[in-house]
Simulated assay, not measured.
Amino acid sequence: MRDNIIKFLSSICVSMLAIFLCFAVLDLIWFTFISGDWYQQEMQGLMRTEFIIWPWLAFYFLYGGVTFVLAVVANRDKPIYYAGIDGALLGLASYGAYNLTSYSILEGFSLFIMAVDWSWGTFLTSVCAMAGWAGFQKVRPKIDQK
């Protein structure tokens, strides 16, 4: 019993770590090698000269936790693609709320950036949810599985 509790808690930790690492690595690749210039060109007048880290960290820790609950835990007994679908839906709603609101109220927030960022967020959340699901399954106690 104690071993199962330890394994279950470990599966949560491994899943969360997989989600956070996936977000960090993919967003680093995205902003560094793929889209950084697009954001710089399209949002010149809106971007800070110095990046403030704490809001970014707060968002990703909160968002990673929500991804875990809504996409990983909700689909722990289903195939991985269910976590991917729920992750995509979460990304669609979350990044959609941000991008649609930004586009509607910020003069320099372009339709191009809205579409690119919204698509990226949907894809990113889906992949991170699947990484979290895989991490959860890796350590999950056998007694918990159906």
Rank of each mutant, 00 (worst) to 15 (best):
D3W: 04
N4G: 13
I6M: 10
L9C: 11
C13Y: 03
C13Q: 04
C13T: 06
M16A: 11
L17K: 03
A18R: 04
I19R: 04
I19W: 06
L21Q: 04
V25Y: 09
D27M: 08
D27H: 10
F31D: 08
T32D: 11
T32C: 07
S35E: 04
G36S: 11
M43A: 11
Q44Y: 07
Q44M: 10
L46V: 12
T49Y: 09
E50N: 10
I52L: 13
L57C: 12
L57H: 07
F59Y: 09
F61Y: 13
F61A: 15
F61K: 11
V66S: 05
V66I: 15
T67F: 07
L70I: 02
K78V: 01
K78S: 15
Y82V: 04
D86V: 00
A93Y: 02
G96T: 00
G96F: 13
A97D: 00
A97W: 08
N99K: 00
L100I: 13
L100F: 14
T101V: 13
S104W: 13
S104G: 10
I105D: 00
M114D: 01
M114C: 12
V116L: 09
V116N: 05
G121P: 03
T122F: 07
F123A: 12
L124M: 09
T125G: 05
T125D: 05
T125A: 08
C128P: 02
A129G: 10
A131E: 10
P141H: 04
K142F: 02
D144P: 01
